[in-house]
Each structure stands twice: as C-alpha cells, then as structure tokens.
C-alpha cells in the first residue's frame, strides 16, 4: 500500500497523543492530582488507532473503563477528556462519568462502560438499528480478553449472527484480566476460536503493529458494512501498566514488560516509516512534541475549569425532569 504522508502523520499523532495522555494521567494519579480509577491504555495504542481511523464519522463505538485510547483515536477533544477526568463541567459527561465513562456521543462514541462486556450487546443493537433504518453504518465494540467469559459476549455474538448485525467485536488481548493470566483463563486457547461456533468471521492480528491492525480492520469493516454480518478481531497486545493506576503488578514476571516494550507500537511505527524514508525522525519528533504540549495544555485547562453546579446532581436521570 502506498502510504501518504498525512495518513502516516495522522496515525502517529493519535498514538503519541494517547501515550502522552496516559503517561500524564499516570503521574497525576500518583501525585494525587486525580481522583477515582485510571485504567491506563499504554502499550495498546496501535489497536485503537488502527481501527478507529478506518471508521466513518457516523459509525458507532462502544468502549470500556479503559477508554482513553479509543476516545483520543476518535478525536474527542482532549480538553473534554481531561475535564471529565477531573470531574469538571467541561468534561464530556459534564463530570458525571469520570475516567471510566468518558466518551462523546457526537462522535458516535456510545460510551465507556464500567461493567465487563457491557458494551457488546449494545453495539450489536446499534448496528442492527442502522441496518433497519436503511443506513450502512457499522458498530465496533472494544473489550478485553477477560470479557469473553461473560454471557454477554456469547449472547451478543449469537444475536448479531442471527439478526445480521454489522458489528465488529474487537478483543484487545493484553495477556491479563486484572491479575489473571490469559493462558490460565482462556480455556478455548484463543478468542478467535470462540467466534467460530457462532459463524462469526474472525481474524487474529499483531496488536503492536498499527499497520497490521489497520489493514485487518479495513477488511473487516468493509465486510461488515457490505454484508451486514458480524466479525471479530483479536488483537494481541500487552498492558504496560497495572489493571489500574496503583496496582502493584506483583503478578507480572520481571522481564515481561521489557520484552513487550521492545515491540512497542510507537517504536515499531517509527522504524517502519523512517527506514524506508517515508518520514524523518524530525517529522515524528515534531508531532510527538505537539502531542505532549496539547496534552499538557488540556490538563492545565481542566484544572482551571469550573466544577459542576450542585443543581445538576438531579438532572439527566430522566430525559425530562418531572
């Protein structure tokens, strides 16, 4: 594939924004500047970036508590994300949802869900609605390796297959469900093996390589859009951090993080574009630095943003206040 400069820089911009955002969230959490849970996405940037940049603006996405990467890849304004992390009025949810629920309905981000596997049937339904209403929108639902043991996973696959829902199930297999290793809990051996009995077309991909993810996503999205059939993508990746910030991670073997960091999605991208001369290190450094500044500005802006008014405690429970 011929890679044009803007496309490449677009991928790089998103991946660096995610990495910088997560690094900053992590240090701020450690410094007690953030309240609540922070689920770090570092290490998995290529997946959100590779898939979401292949979506159309009107496609749907559901995410999890680990949703910062998906939001940033979807170009949710950084200030609206930091505002949410800090519980301010400027947040995507006006401060009501916090880090685990930070999303943007205007961009088709249906939501970050705090319950494992909660988003899958919802995405299938959004995909079905599009079809029933004569639209060719698809839905993507992100989840982890641990989520495939939920009834919701199996029930949504069977629903999507039976009723022709153009939904792409994206499993980010990052080796752990909290502290539990995937080779222990994933009794089927792989997630793609679990899709087969439902007649859901499934592919496994190197989730550390944004090009591999993007190419697989392009095919699966096109397939779902034109056939109306569900598909599943299992992206093999690694969670650099803990389950959440503050997790001691004593369950990780000593060398594991370093081994995966050697395959870092940002490093891999840098090598893949600089070696053939598609981009220079200078090009990349410039964008990475801009990402750092954007993230820093967004955190600074959020810290100055107003707190929600007490009256909003009781708004939004229902569509209308009675």
């Amino acid at each position: 594939m011929i890679e044009d400069r803007d496309t490449l820089l677009g991928l790089w911009q998103r991946m660096t924004r995610i990495r910088r955002f997560e690094e900053r969230a992590s240090t701020d959490k450690e410094a007690d500047l953030l309240e609540g849970y922070i689920h770090n996405y570092s290490g998995q940037e290529a997946i959100a970036t590779g898939i979401i940049t292949q979506l159309r603006a009107d496609d749907w996405i559901t995410s999890t508590y680990r949703n910062h990467g998906h939001s940033i890849a979807r170009d949710v304004p950084l200030e609206a994300m930091t505002g949410e992390l800090l519980g301010r009025t400027t947040g995507v949810c006006g401060g009501k949802g916090g880090s685990m629920h930070a999303v943007d309905q205007d961009l088709g981000m249906i939501g970050g869900m705090g319950i494992v596997a909660g988003g899958m049937p919802i995405a299938a339904g959004a995909a079905l609605a599009a079809r029933r209403r004569g639209q060719d929108r698809v839905a993507v639902t992100f989840f982890g390796d641990g989520a495939v043991h939920q009834g919701a996973f199996h029930e949504s696959m069977t629903f999507a297959a039976l009723f022709n829902c153009p939904v792409i199930f994206v499993c980010e297999n990052n080796l752990y469900a909290e502290t539990t290793a995937v080779d222990y809990h994933l009794i089927a051996g792989s997630v793609i093996a679990m899709a087969e009995p439902y007649g859901v077309h499934a592919t496994q991909v190197d989730g550390m390589d944004v090009f591999a993810v993007r190419d697989a996503a392009e095919q699966l999205i096109a397939r779902a859009r034109y056939t109306g059939r569900p598909a599943l993508l299992e992206a093999m990746t690694y969670r650099y951090g803990g389950q959440y910030e503050g997790d001691t991670q004593t369950y990780k073997p000593p060398q594991e993080v370093a081994q995966w960091r050697a395959r870092d999605p940002l490093l891999t991208f840098r090598r893949r574009v600089t070696e053939p001369g598609l981009l220079t290190h200078g090009d990349l450094d410039e964008v990475a630095e801009r990402s750092r500044v954007e993230v820093a500005d967004a955190f600074a802006a959020a810290a100055l943003a107003p707190w929600p008014d007490p009256s909003v405690l009781l708004t939004d429970v229902y569509t209308e206040i009675s």
Binding site: E178, T179, T180, A181, V182, D183, Y184, H185, T248, T250, Y251, K252, P253, P254
Partner: peptide, 16 residues
C-alpha cells in the same frame, strides 16, 4: 491473584 503464573513466578500467587 496471579493465576497462571504460579510456576513461572511463584511470588505472583497471593500477591493481590
């Protein structure tokens, strides 16, 4: 905690 890491890394067990 640490299920699946007991043999390779016994410290993992019970850490959580």
């Amino acid at each position: 905690g640490g299920a699946g890491r007991d043999e390779a890394y016994p410290e993992a067990a019970d850490a959580w």
